[in-house]
């Protein structure tokens, strides 16, 4: 019986230095695993030899089976060590785990993405999916906030999406110098300005919990009900298979019942402090 806690080996095939503290790794199986498939919003557990293992969302395109792509921000010792990897290095990988963005359920609706900081990474597979199946969706709005203009993740991609006539991309920063001519302020303010039909909208929200605390009322204020708002939650995870207990959130394990939840399912819990 294969132990679900034993990782498969993957080799770093490509590294993109996105930001000073953020890198995107392309991984290919080196231990005999076949092609990797996943759904947008799922995550893997990445193990760096001797240092530890952390949950990292998959940030690549579900249609690209050539490599498994993760975008990692250095926030602790293991994530930092992962961002320092070079092509040829090996990592351990377990996954994919968890629930996914409801890209099929959203067909026929306007899709509004509200995200901040590294939260854009777990949403990128959903963005790729909508763009690959553009005709299946109504209006497509991407609202993104970063701390400063220098912290904007996937900047060239955001610019290329913005150049399309069938995508609305609004970007804002918390603070900027004079050279920044764009929006300044929290991302939730963009919700009021974006063009979408609240009665036929599915919203996908991923960012720091404090951002979600403002984004959800803003979406509700526009008329999007909690049942059509989907959020990606983050909790401590040691196993990703519902055995370690660390990610418990009320009756849910964020690792297997989440990380993506229809907000209506967790709204009560979300209002509880330190749940």
């Amino acid at each position: 019986m294969r132990d679900p806690m034993t990782p498969s080996l993957y080799r770093v095939d490509k590294v993109v230095r996105e930001l000073p503290d953020t890198a995107t790794l392309g991984l290919v199986p080196s231990g005999g695993d076949g092609p990797f498939s996943f759904r947008p919003g799922q995550f893997n557990m990445l193990y760096r030899f001797g240092m530890g293992e952390v949950p990292i969302s998959i940030s690549g395109d579900t249609l690209d089976r050539s490599r498994v792509v993760h975008t990692i921000r250095a926030v602790g010792s293991v994530s930092r060590a992962l961002t320092e990897l070079a092509p040829g290095d090996e990592v351990g990988l377990r996954g994919p785990f968890g629930s996914s963005w409801p890209v099929d359920e959203a067909a026929g609706h306007d899709v509004v993405i509200v995200t901040g900081g590294i939260g854009l990474a777990p949403l990128r597979p959903a963005i790729y999916h909508v763009l690959s199946n553009r005709g299946r969706y109504g209006r497509f709005v991407i609202l993104y906030g970063a701390r400063t203009p220098n912290d904007i993740l996937f900047r060239s991609e955001l610019e290329s999406w913005r150049s399309r006539f069938d995508v609305d991309v609004l970007v804002t920063v918390d603070s900027a110098g004079r050279e920044w001519g764009g929006n300044v302020g929290v991302v939730t303010r963009l919700v009021d300005r974006a063009g979408f039909d609240p009665l036929h909208t599915v919203a996908l929200v991923c960012g720091p919990e404090v951002m979600m605390r403002f984004a959800i009322p803003a979406l509700n204020g526009r008329g999007v009900p909690n049942g059509r708002i989907h959020v990606s939650m983050e909790r401590n995870m040691k196993c990703a298979i519902g055995l370690c207990g660390h990610c418990q959130y009320g009756s849910y394990f964020v690792c297997k019942d989440g990380p993506v939840f229809p907000f209506a399912r967790i709204a009560t819990l979300f209002a509880v402090r330190e749940a």
């Binding site: 193990y47 001797g50 530890g52 040691k238 370690c244």
Partner: peptide
């Protein structure tokens, strides 16, 4: 109660690593 954490160790040469699961508490 079944909660557990994990702990990583390496030997002095850094050539051998182990990953252990230990009981943890909420």
């Amino acid at each position: 109660c079944f909660c557990a954490t994990v702990e990583d160790t390496t030997d002095l040469s850094g050539g051998v690593a182990e990953r252990w699961r230990r009981w943890d508490s909420c």
